[in-house]
Write a protein that binds this DNA or RNA. Structure first.
Lengths: 327, 327
DNA sequence: AACCTCGTTCGAAGCGCTTCGATTCAATTC
DNA sequence: GAATTGAATCGAAGCGCTTCGAACGAGGTT
């Protein structure tokens, strides 16, 4: 193994000088910087990560905490992870993969053993047990899917409120005057899960502002329930020509039911979905996508800012992008 | 921060003794072992990973190299990753996530900086540039999707040959006597990509053994091509009552085309797919699944064996499991 | 009673790096 | 020409752990 001492000897300088060349923490003359750089190249020197972590108390590793349980949309998680790793590497960081099912103990472990410099936690819920632990650990952290109480923490998320509004605006521009909304199961709204409400709020406000007639209903997962709620909507909102769906689990069923009721999609009822892109792609629906890649990149950038002592805003909301697939 | 010295002082022993309690590398009397354990609990001691790595030249971290590019089936990758992390944790290991697009340089980097003890590399191709590098690095590694030349390396994969055979056996048991096979695009067979051939070989051999009539054709990705090849198959193999499909990209299209030709699926033509489970689930087809979770677990176990100085077999093939969804 | 043995425990030396005073030497000032 | 500065470099200490030879006692042997 090539150590910093070998490099120093080869370049005819002290080990500390090599270190300063590498870290840039003290000025080094252009001449020696070059000589040292050359020796590093020649010897193929790579600093020992453990030694660095021990001496410098900095690991250059981020923990990425992912929900790997069933029920989350795996491709989105994967895309997010991919984007995180790529962006982390641009900042010369590596990524340690931690699963959410280790829970708060997992965070304690990787922080306590000094394995990572900071945390990226995906799929944070309201009253998540990990939030207080993250505060207690005091390491920089960025949360995705923001919990209500975010004081001191940094959160990133899609701007669901804007997403709800964006759907309305899009449809109004296409000439629709009566718009339905199918949301998550009722229980989700009951337990105040943030993103569901925010979408609905954005939708309602925009409908109000635009002066369009609208009705919003929750949609349960089961087939019959979907059929029923679609029926209700068509009855209640008789002149409905457009529908916003914020419920990826039943999206396919909704379209199916509409067609079963004799409505062509999108000719009779224009459907706009708020869901992962590939699902909308598959069903050929206009959609507001969840930008997993941008989310990942931004999350890493915020975390890096915190690691560098900056204080990024507590909440970053990404503007929604609507993809029209009516053509 | 609580160090090993603090624990030692608290328990009234030497630091080395604490170390031996922790690692079990030398016998410690039951009495002191207990006292030390108690002190560790009380003080909440967690060993510093960097210090450990430096002194012990062992990181307790595995590198997981994943293909995060488009075109791979993301849910499968995710499930595999999940299983790897879970199993690794059972062996007290953490997992560093590395993307395949860092290529061989990524392997060099994490090995050279002593960040990891070993490698888990998914989606290895024939003539993969990483294979020679892994040899050169000399760290334990387990590959998934085995390259032809596997000398000195350890590989795990689904037993595609058995999978091909299993489909035939299943169909023969159901009474089918004439079975078609639709495989990957022709180019895949041309470039000798291992798993595609092996499936076909297993299929053909089983058909021969069972004395059933069969024809195998490659399927290109495009809609028209699929329609054409399904037509050809129906013409050539006039009495075909069953079809094995090993091409997840066109699976849906194949079923669609069969129905367009007036064949009911599965009544007139029983279709068995070799593909990720959720795809078959969605299309309600009997399938041989790619057991990502078992694969991940086994891969980690093999890697741990190598880290412990054992020499596991060069190639482990997992027996295929067929899920019948005809009911 | 002196001598081994063997199971336990101790002490000290490193692992490869960062960091912080101290030192050097050339350039500047009086 | 002596004194002062400041940029560049050096040397040594120390980060928290593992590991190895040595030391220690209690038990058994001759």
């Amino acid at each position: 193994m090539v150590t910093i001492v070998d490099v120093a000897r080869h370049a005819g300088v002290a080990p500390s000088t090599v270190s300063y060349v590498l870290t840039g923490k003290r000025p080094v003359s252009a001449d020696t910087r070059m000589r040292v750089g050359e020796s590093i190249r020649l010897l193929g020197y790579q600093p020992h990560a453990g030694a660095r972590a021990l001496a410098g108390s900095r690991t250059n590793v981020l923990a990425l905490v992912l929900p790997l349980r069933e029920g989350v949309h795996l491709p989105v998680v994967m895309r997010f992870a991919s984007s995180v790793v790529t962006t982390a590497r641009e900042h010369d960081m590596d990524v340690l993969l931690v699963t959410a099912n280790e829970g708060a103990a997992g965070l304690r472990r990787v922080a306590g053993t000094a394995r990572v410099d900071g945390f990226l936690v995906m799929d944070v819920e309201l009253d998540d047990e990990r939030v207080p632990v993250l505060r207690e650990l005091g390491r920089p952290a960025v949360l995705l899917g923001h919990p209500a109480v975010s004081n001191g923490l940094t959160c990133v998320d899609l701007d669901f409120e804007a997403a709800g509004a964006r759907c309305v605006d899009h449809l109004v521009e296409l000439g629709h005057r009566t718009i339905g909304f199918l949301g998550a199961p009722g229980a989700v709204y009951a337990r105040n899960t943030g993103f569901a409400q925010r979408t609905l709020a954005g939708f309602s406000a925009a409908a109000m502002r635009r002066g369009v007639a609208s009705t919003a209903l929750p949609a349960e997962r089961h087939r019959d329930a979907v059929r029923a709620v679609v029926g209700t909507l068509l009855r209640e909102l008789a002149r409905m020509t457009a529908l916003v769906v914020h419920n990826e689990a039943v999206l396919g069923l909704v379209v199916e039911c509409l067609r079963a009721e004799g409505r062509r999609v999108p000719e009779d009822v224009a459907v706009v979905a708020i869901c992962p892109d590939e699902l909308a792609e598959q069903l050929r629906l206009t959609s507001v996508r969840l930008p997993a890649d941008v989310l990942g990149r931004r999350a890493v950038e915020l975390l890096m800012a915190k690691l560098n002592g900056q204080q990024p805003p507590a909440l970053t909301l990404l503007p929604p992008k609507l993809f029209s697939r009516t053509g």
